[in-house]
Design a protein around this nucleic acid. Structure first.
Length: 482
DNA sequence: TTTTGAGTTGTTCGA
DNA sequence: GTCGAACAACTCAAA
């Protein structure tokens, strides 16, 4: 192995140049480095990217290509089955090493394992790293060596290991150039962005994909909203969260960078400790989701709790469409679903209410909600999306007791007290008095001039009655016991 | 092996 | 309006 040999870094969900272990390892070898991103829509079992994710990916790859250029590293874009694409690239560049950061879904693991054993058999240096988690899922185990199924003990175990989290890696030195044989596609030919119709206007206005956007979001959060996070995080009418989720999803920032930045901030602002730890526990929920996905690979498709296989779900019908379009007649639910459609994002509190509404009030299987979120969320993440949907539905790990059914009216009144969030996303209700904003069907027919439902855009009546739907859900869950 | 304490995010009812 | 209890058992994690 000579130092002049080319190394390849296979980028996946780690679209950053800082704190990127695979890139750092390639740079450390001393020879030229080629970066590759493979749009793999062929390997069996890999889930296709949703529309919002494709939009984000386009922007993120553009930024990554720029950042890599400053390091003298070309980003090669190739389309096809990863194994074949990488074989071809290894041959044409004469590379002697291939490095990547791990993924943890079943199909991804199978694909990577096959590629690695192939390369090793040919004497190529193939190595994988942890680029997206505080610790690999197999590094956290119960006292008996098992996997955690309850969050709180997992969180305690994770904190106990926090001294062992790797320090974020610095930006690599500028690389020796000279890689040849690395032609690829032009990004535009992948058509990741919508054209006709162009539905991405709201996404463009809301987000800045890429590593710079990720670091700016973290800095903004640590200078501002982290203080008071514990309470404000539940308020969709307040900018009380970090909005880092899509950046984490694509690996534009890693959890170790976040962990260390929070700890650094705590050193100078100890009064924010409980807020900061609350925030880190949310990062830990993401870790927990990956822990679950790794140890229970069927999490995205099958009930974690098999008892739920007998649950009497209703067939998805026009109620599913009403939910997707934000036309349920429950303002907090509809505001969330419309925020999602417009921006590719929904506030976490509202996600819970909307998900509870689909699975409990409408009794539609969580996998339809999971699929919709996967297509429309810019932060759609196989582990978090599946484990959170199952948590809400009651079939997941550490799930809420089944009788815990969110009341969409109370949730609205509690967490959007003035109705500002509803008013923003449900324009029909913009002039509705706060008293009725979360239950407009109770508003008197004759409201003062200029208030109430705008006549030109009727807001639908509730598609189900809360009390009746709640009872029906309780009865359905009760049937599982027998 | 057995025991014990605990478990993200809530709602409703009645006093 | 406020408050505590009931809602159900069950599984997990650790001693």
């Amino acid at each position: 192995m000579t130092s002049a040999e080319t190394s390849i870094v296979w980028f996946r969900n780690d679209l950053r140049v800082r704190d990127n272990p695979a890139l750092a390892a390639a740079a450390a070898r001393g020879g030229p480095v080629v970066a590759v991103y493979v749009l793999d829509e062929e390997t069996a079992g890999l889930r296709p990217l949703g529309g919002a994710s494709r939009w984000w990916l386009h922007g993120s790859l553009e930024r990554l290509a720029d950042d890599l250029t400053t390091l003298n590293i070309p980003l090669v874009l190739r389309r096809g089955a990863a194994q074949a694409v990488l074989d071809d690239l290894m041959r044409s560049t004469g590379a002697g090493a291939l490095y990547w950061n791990r993924r943890y879904d079943a199909a991804g693991i199978a694909c990577d394992t096959a590629i690695k054993s192939n390369l090793k058999a040919r004497g190529v240096d193939a190595e994988s790293f942890n680029g997206s988690l505080l610790t690999d899922p197999w590094d956290i185990a119960t006292a008996q060596g098992g996997r955690y199924k309850v969050f709180t003990p997992f969180w305690r175990a994770l904190q106990a290991r926090s001294g062992g989290f790797d320090t974020p890696l610095p930006l690599p030195e500028r690389i020796l150039s000279g890689a040849a044989g690395s032609e690829g596609d032009a990004l535009d030919t992948w058509r990741l962005q919508p054209t006709s119709p162009d539905w991405a206007g709201g996404l463009r206005a809301s987000w800045q994909p890429g590593e710079d956007g990720a670091r700016e979001a973290l800095e903004r959060f640590l200078e501002g909203a982290v203080e008071g996070y514990g309470d404000n995080r539940d308020r969709p009418d307040i900018k009380g969260t970090s909005a880092l989720s899509p950046h984490l999803r694509f690996g534009e920032i890693g959890p170790r960078t976040i962990w260390h930045a929070v700890m650094h901030r705590l050193a100078s602002a100890p009064q924010t400790e409980s807020d900061a730890m609350k925030f880190l526990s949310e990062i830990a929920w993401r870790e927990f989701a990956y822990h679950l996905l790794f140890h229970f690979p069927t999490l995205p498709e099958r009930n974690f709790n098999p008892k739920f296989d007998a649950f009497p779900w209703r067939e998805p019908n026009e109620d599913l469409a009403a939910w997707q379009k934000g036309q349920t007649g429950y303002p907090i639910v509809d505001a969330g679903m419309r925020e999602l459609w417009h921006t590719g994002y929904m506030h976490n509190r509202v996600r819970m209410v909307a998900a509870s509404f689909l699975t409990k009030h409408l009794r539609i299987h969580w996998r339809f909600g999971e699929a919709w979120f996967r297509d429309t969320l810019v932060d759609a993440d196989a582990a978090s999306n599946a484990s959170n949907w199952q948590w809400v539905a009651g079939s997941g790990a550490d799930a809420a007791p089944y009788f815990r059914i969110f009341n969409p009216i109370l949730q609205g009144e509690k967490f959007d007290p003035d109705g500002a969030y509803v008013r923003r996303w449900v324009r029909e209700l913009a002039d509705m008095p706060a008293k009725y904003i979360h239950k407009p069907w109770q508003a008197p027919a004759a409201l003062p001039e200029g208030t109430g439902v705008k006549p030109d855009a009727a807001y639908p009546p509730p598609i189900v009655d809360h009390a009746k739907a709640r009872q029906a859900a309780l009865d359905a869950y009760g049937s599982l016991k027998r």
